[in-house]
């Protein structure tokens, strides 16, 4: 299938893109890497009158450092995030999670911003962004920008704080230099979304876990952060026994979906197993 007809705009600056969004209102749809949007348009699940392609806006691409933060342009492709030494050094968790997304061809086109705004609960980028305490820079009408904290960004299934007429421009990730990281993804077939995925990053000190961050993929309508587990891990040795006990309650309060890949209870069971594996791997055990 091919998409329904639309008009195509390819602005070269954020200001022009915002102006185009203002002009076309809810007729308009933003196109990033297109790896989620094009399948949607081809299946005619959506038929916007105007497509605004962000592909020619160079200010939205690339990774830079700003003091204690990494600043990742929304249009930076998965491939370029994976190739970034700064990301591997200061936010290894993001690297580990993105390496599991889809396949090489899709990683060449798909963007980190597109993935985050798309907010598929089974997508692999939300949980690590949440666990790392990322913040999100959003540009809106009249050139206004605002910054939203990770805990407030994901609102519901496929819904984020990025409103109509707005663009996600940057993801700011506090540096977690020296933290071990692991993304444990459970899938049935290759190059597919997570049935459950666990993002864990750990700072170790003298053989014990000094700090931990844990994000959950596909355990509810948005990515979740397991703060109780993070606290329970502090001070624990990185042994199977200690970590097993600390993560045992990871599924408490979650509401994962039931579908052909597994029912809700199965996902809760998976989460405890995968969290133990992820934390142990992140701690280098």
């Amino acid at each position: 299938m091919i998409p329904a007809t639309f008009d195509y705009l390819a602005p070269t600056s954020v200001a022009d893109a915002i102006a185009a969004l203002e002009e076309h209102g809810d007729e308009a749809k933003v196109l990033a890497g297109g790896q989620s949007l094009l399948p949607i348009l081809r299946m005619r699940l959506n038929a916007p009158g105007v497509v605004i392609d962000l592909g020619k806006i160079s200010e939205l691409q690339g990774v830079t450092e700003d003091g204690d933060d990494l600043v990742i342009g929304a249009m930076t492709t998965y491939f370029d995030v994976l190739a970034s030494d700064a990301v591997s050094t200061h936010a290894a968790l993001l690297n580990k999670a993105i390496a599991t997304v889809a396949d090489p061809q899709i990683r060449h086109r798909g963007t980190i911003g597109g993935a985050l705004v798309h907010a598929d609960p089974a997508g692999d980028v939300g949980a690590p962004a949440l666990a790392l305490g990322a913040s999100f820079v959003i540009a809106g009408p009249g050139g206004a920008t605002r910054t939203v904290a990770a805990d407030d960004f994901f609102e519901d299934l496929f819904q984020t704080a990025v409103g109509e007429g707005e663009l996600l421009t940057q993801i700011r990730v506090p540096k977690h230099t020296g933290w071990g990281a692991h993304y444990e993804k459970f899938v049935r077939v290759s190059h597919q979304w997570s049935i459950v995925g666990i993002a864990a990053t750990v700072r170790s000190e003298g053989g014990a876990i000094a700090e931990a961050r844990v994000g959950l993929t596909n355990m509810g309508s948005t990515p979740l952060r397991a703060k109780a587990v993070e606290e329970a891990l502090v001070g624990q040795p990185a042994t199977d026994e200690a970590v097993r006990a600390a993560v045992a309650q990871v599924a408490d309060g979650t509401n994962p979906p039931s579908d052909l890949n597994g029912d809700s209870d199965y996902r809760k069971h998976l989460a405890t197993v995968l969290t133990r594996r992820a934390v142990l791997a992140a701690a280098g055990a």
């Binding site: 390819a10 196109l31 399948p39 392609d53 090489p104 899709i106």
Partner: peptide
Amino acid sequence: TVHLDGTSVKSCNMLAVQ
């Protein structure tokens, strides 16, 4: 699959205008 500027992409998942 084709190459766009030397890297592989799925040409069914891209617009010609891109």
